[in-house]
């Protein structure tokens, strides 16, 4: 589905690269998490993957087509949900906003909006405004917006970093549910190791400047539960492994 080859990005010519030799693939309907410490270039990577900025070197292919500018089958969920929602639109207005530019008729857009809001559990909040909702609900609106867009791949930038632990747990499970039901591919960036292991099938550990240091398969049972899964010894092992990988000194980077 997504093939990233030797991606590099240097902002100022002759300066330090923010991303160097990023290489990985994501298969269809996979749930892949990317972890990295602060400053390792996650943001740069995401902005290149989403087509918002061009890379200096390397290529990105989505479903066999090169990515040059925001691709059609991708939806991006931002970390700062409150700033990515339009305050002058209702919840339903926000969710349906991108749809009219995708060529959907009003009826089609309304149907997609309703479906997406139901999927995230906000079916009755269509008429509210973002500022009337709590943080967790706002992020759900952003996810609904991405869902209604019917992308093939969902790019998520630490989406649950700014919510409290309880809400985060709920949202994680919601996301897993949506992933399964809608059969989309998810690329999820986080700095939370627990979250990465819990959610994904594979964890990519990023080192600075953004490149994949290690790929770790998460061989946990497919059914994830906040309490049971995290009690498994394998969970702890994987967790430690990711942590170690994060902390390991990197002699392969430039």
């Amino acid at each position: 589905m997504l093939v990233v080859s030797d991606l590099s990005k240097t902002y100022a010519p002759g300066g330090e690269p923010a991303m160097a030799g990023l290489d990985f693939t994501v298969g269809e309907r996979e749930f892949v998490c990317i972890v990295g410490s602060s400053g390792c270039g996650k943001t740069t990577m995401l902005r290149c993957l989403s087509g918002l900025i061009p890379p200096t070197e390397g290529s990105i292919e989505l479903e066999g087509r090169a990515v040059q500018g925001p691709p059609e089958d991708m939806a991006y969920v931002f970390q700062d949900y409150s700033r990515s929602l339009l305050p002058w639109q209702t919840v339903a207005g926000n969710v349906s906003f991108p749809l009219k530019y995708k060529g959907l008729s009003k009826a089609e857009a309304a149907a997609a909006t309703e479906e997406a809001l139901a999927a995230v559990g906000l079916a009755d909040r269509g008429r509210s405004y973002p500022w009337q909702l709590s943080g967790g609900m706002q992020q759900r609106v952003a996810i609904a917006r991405a869902l209604a867009y019917k992308p093939r791949i969902l790019l998520m930038d630490e989406p649950f970093a700014s919510v409290d632990a309880q809400t985060r747990a709920e949202l994680e499970d919601l996301l897993l549910d949506i992933w399964r039901r809608f059969e989309i591919t998810v690329l999820f960036v986080t700095h939370d190791i627990d979250e990465a292991v819990y959610l994904s099938q594979r964890v990519l550990v990023l080192h600075k400047p953004a490149h994949v240091f290690e790929a770790i398969d998460v061989d946990l049972p497919a059914e994830r539960d906040q309490m049971d899964t995290k009690k498994l010894p394998r969970f702890g092992e994987l967790r430690s492994r990711v942590l170690a990988s994060l902390r390991a000194p990197d002699t392969t980077s430039a």
Binding site: L52, P70, Y76, R83
Partner: peptide, 9 residues
């Protein structure tokens, strides 16, 4: 919000 608009083409 501008990035969001651009990302949704």
């Amino acid at each position: 919000v501008l990035d969001m608009a651009r990302s949704y083409r």
